[in-house]
């Protein structure tokens, strides 16, 4: 169950349309390292996590990623909500416009559609938490790349906020991995899969 709260986690108020920038930022909506991908990754992995508190962390971070998706969508929307057909043509927004007008659709900056192929839910706690560490770093790199290109403070502020969250989430997934390791044999963390070989894992608890 989820409850909607009618506000953004971080405020977005962009006063100028810029379809070119929208086309770059949309990558964090539907791109390979985007917020939708992040949310679906964590919310998929949580069910079979052997440690209850790790499932809890995945739920909370997966939920926060949905709020980040809403921030990105609000930015894309405010960058494109009053476009003239001239602006559409000049800014190279025409291909997107033909398919979606100025509606939101999850795709990468390269126009690759959103796909679950971009993330994993592997069913091994160590593997999945290591994937999550990499995912947070990949998203941070995307925000770095965007921040380098976009000087407008109205756009930089929320991007900077979202980038900081990637660093915090990385730390939390690291701590979740340490908690999982604590329940395993430090001589060989790979003797069995704690998520599948449940009897062997429960012997360790």
């Amino acid at each position: 169950m989820w409850i909607y709260e009618k506000r953004l986690q971080y405020p977005v108020k962009i006063t100028k349309n810029c379809p070119k920038t929208a086309q770059l930022i949309i990558s964090q909506y539907g791109g390979p390292d985007g917020e939708l991908s992040a949310s679906m990754r964590y919310l998929s992995q949580r069910y079979s996590m052997p440690l209850k508190e790790v499932g809890g962390l995945l739920t909370d971070i997966g939920t926060e990623e949905l709020a980040h998706m809403e921030i990105i969508c609000a930015m894309v929307y405010q960058l494109t909500n009053n476009l003239s057909i001239e602006q559409v043509k000049e800014a190279g927004f025409d291909a997107y416009y033909v398919d979606h007008t100025t509606a939101l659709w999850p795709q990468a900056a390269s126009a690759l559609p959103f796909t679950a192929i971009e993330f994993q839910s592997k069913g091994d706690a160590i593997t999945d938490l290591t994937e999550n560490l990499a995912a947070e770093q990949k998203a941070r790199t995307v925000y770095d790349n965007l921040l380098r290109m976009i000087p407008d403070p109205e756009i930089q502020e929320p991007l900077k906020f979202l980038r900081s969250r990637e660093v915090v989430h990385f730390q939390r997934f690291g701590e979740a991995l340490e908690k999982t390791k604590d329940k395993l044999d430090s001589k060989n963390f790979y003797y069995f899969n704690p998520e599948f070989d449940k009897k062997m894992f429960q012997g360790k608890l």
Partner: peptide, 29 residues
């Protein structure tokens, strides 16, 4: 904390290209 993106001093690791907007007053908020 909202302007920086974390409540923890220890986890504040800013990026050079966004330092111009690293002030403690957020023009939007």
């Amino acid at each position: 904390a909202l302007n920086i993106g974390t409540i923890f001093h220890d986890l504040n690791m800013p990026f050079f290209a966004a330092e111009g907007v690293m002030g403690d007053k957020n023009p939007i908020a």
